[in-house]
Every structure is written in structure tokens, then in C-alpha cells.
Design a protein around this nucleic acid. Sequence first.
DNA 1: TTTTAATTGTTGCAATTGCAACAATATAAT
DNA 2: ATTATATTGTTGCAATTGCAACAATTAAAA
Lengths: 208, 208
Amino acid sequence: MKNLFDNISTKNKEKILKNLEANTLHFKKNNKILSTFKNENFIGIIIEGWIQIIKIDYNGNRTIIEDLEENGVFGTMISSFSNQEYDIITKDDTKIIMLDYDRIININNNNTYYNQFLKNLLEIVINITNERNKRIEILTKKTIRNKLLEYFNVVTKNNHSKIIYLTSTLTDLSDYLAIDRCAMMRELKYLKEEGFIEIKNKKITLLY
Amino acid sequence: MKNLFDNISTKNKEKILKNLEANTLHFKKNNKILSTFKNENFIGIIIEGWIQIIKIDYNGNRTIIEDLEENGVFGTMISSFSNQEYDIITKDDTKIIMLDYDRIININNNNTYYNQFLKNLLEIVINITNERNKRIEILTKKTIRNKLLEYFNVVTKNNHSKIIYLTSTLTDLSDYLAIDRCAMMRELKYLKEEGFIEIKNKKITLLY
DNA sequence: TTTTAATTGTTGCAATTGCAACAATATAAT
DNA sequence: ATTATATTGTTGCAATTGCAACAATTAAAA
């Protein structure tokens, strides 16, 4: 995964952070964090650790919007959690650099390294857009079966393999696909019975 | 809408275009364009005109992925139409600047104006991500009614008004929401009958 | 102006889905 | 090791949805 400070020396990285008045924040595992930042226009970078950005529906349904580890980038605009209904939860001890988005845009700093920084950020955001596009491609499929097949498609296109290792739980997958978990389990069963797939723990093998 | 060359003089704009070996292309209305670019990593900017990026399903269903006018930015990564199933159609006489994405990233040009260019592009891509996030928010709603209400929500939040003017057709809306058009019409009728909305031509008034 | 094409509007019906209410495993915490 | 919690797995049933097959209206083209 692209790192925001790729091709930037440690020295210049420090300069950028100072220039942007970056804050480095530390959090313990399993905490609701950054709630005071919700109304600000920030970009956060995970230096180490693991966070999830979670939305709680008015029905109490919890959905994972982002699941980010080291080098993960998130923020108001990027993650679209400007309204109050979102929580950022640490799933591990986590160190985050917080940047002020408006400062990134408005600052005048035409050094090569700041240029590189902008290019890196651009690449990261473009990759995020790409991820969003893939999810939309999946979500626009009308049946559960087609959503699953499109999901398999997207994953295998990335990995060039007919074997998919779920990084998360099936419950999370049903969240991602925006379908009822039980209905998804049923459809997976049908796909198994019809010989399209095999499932063993978190390993899904495509047989087509 | 943000312009890619905001805060850049015409002179410097020309320099950037030359430096990036940009191509300015002209197309007539109602043409399938840029099919030869499909395998390249480009970013296109619409200088004038109107295009739509359209996906044709294996079932023959056509979906509008992007509907772009002046200043619109699109491209391989951003629009995720790297595979062959997409068409770019001019809906009017159109002038497009084509940029090589890899060149944008790899070129070494740390002038103030190139810096500004990168910031503008970054802002544009972030806005696009934001649009994608909104659509995902809508698509993850489980019933047609909730999709419609979330759509109304998103639009009225932008416009600060209880009146929505559809810029396109209802058929296109059902595409955007990824629901069957007839089922959507039925739900709109129910919403009307229950006094939640009023529809007159392309004007939807929210009564709640 | 007339014809053609596109969009809107309607509805029965079958298929799909979400929901509820479980049992069975597996994982994590004490 | 035992308890508690989370995840997986299953199924009946009612609600929602997509589909098909139309008519009516509106917009565009000849």
C-alpha cells in the first residue's frame, strides 16, 4: 500500500509535519477516538495500529465504513463521516498523525518534497476512489448472488487467484455487500450446493 | 465546481499542458469516443461539451456511471472503467484535454503553478470520492423507500432546500439507486399517497 | 405536422429478501 | 479450565422487489 511519505527523506518529512502543524496522537486499544475532530476538515494517517470507522444506524445496525491499518489514510472528505453518526474505534494501540486539510491545500510550499507529498496524497486518494468504485459496482448488482459473484470477481481480479481469504468475518462481508447476513449465508449454501464454490473457515475457493 | 486550472495563469497553464504532453481533442455530438485510450492510464478534462460514461451489462442494461460537463474530470483510476465494458459517449460537441496520469505523478516540476495544479487535482479527486461516498450511503440502504429517502436527504443537505429538481430522468434515477424503475415508481406513488412528497414534472417537494 | 422514440405510469405475480428466532461452533476473557 | 461473547449456520414466513406486459404521456425527429 502507498505510503504518504514515500520518496521523502525523514528530514523532509519532519519539515512537512512541522509546516502543516501536524499532531501525532497515541491511543489505547478499543477506544472511541477523535470525536472532537468530527467537525474539522482533517486527514489522518495511521502510523501504527488499527482502527475502524463505524456507522451506527438509527436502527442500531453497525456498519464498518473503513478498516484501516498502518499507512491507512482517512478523513472528513475522504471517508464522508462529517455527520455525527460515525465512530472511530481503535482495534489496537494506535498512533495517528492528524493533518489539517485546508492547510495542505492553502499552504505555499513549492519544495520538491512537498510536491512529492502532494503526489503521494493524490495517489492515495485516487486509490480510495478506486476502492469506492469497486464497491459501487458490487452494490449496484440486484441479487445477492450477483453481489457475491461480483465481489469474488473484484477480489480475484486483484489477486489473480481463484482462492479468496477473507480478512474479516462473514458478518462484516454481509455489511460490506449491504445484505442481510442470514440471506447471504443461504445464498452461499446454494452456491456451494451447485458446485460453484467451496468454503472452509475463511477460505473461499471458486470452482468456475 | 472546481476547475483544474484554478489560480493558474493562462501562461502557466500552457506550460503545464506542454510539460505533460497534453492532447486536446475535439469530438462531435453523439459519438463513442476514446475507445483507443481504454487501456491507458489517463485523466481527461472536459473543456467544453458534455459526455456520459456508460456501462453495458451482459444483460444489455445500460447504466450511466458518469455524467460530465464543463470542468468535469474523469479517468481510468477515477472512473474505474479499465475493463472493456464501458463506453464514453459525447452528448454534445466536446473538447477534451487528455493527460497521462503517470506523467503527472512522475514528472519533476516544483514550480508554484505545478504545485497549485496538483492541489487542484487533489481537491477534485477528493470531491469525487465524496460523491462516491454519498452514493454508497444510499446504496447500502436496504429498502427502496429508504434509498429514496436517503437520496432526498443527500440532495437537500447540499441545496438547503426541500425542493429537488431532477437534472435527469426518473429512469436515470432508478439506475443511480440501482433499483427497478417500476418498483421505484410504485414506491414514489406510496410516498405521494402517504403525504411525504409531491411530484410535478421534474420537481419533487418534500413535505416532511 | 405527423411519425417515431423516449419517458412516465400502472399492476399482477413469482422470485428474492429481510427478519426473527433459533442451535451450534469458535474465539476471547477471566 | 470455565465462562462469556462472538461468529457461523439454519429455516419458516411475511414483506419487498424485480419482471413482464402493458397504456398514457411527453419529447424528438422526419
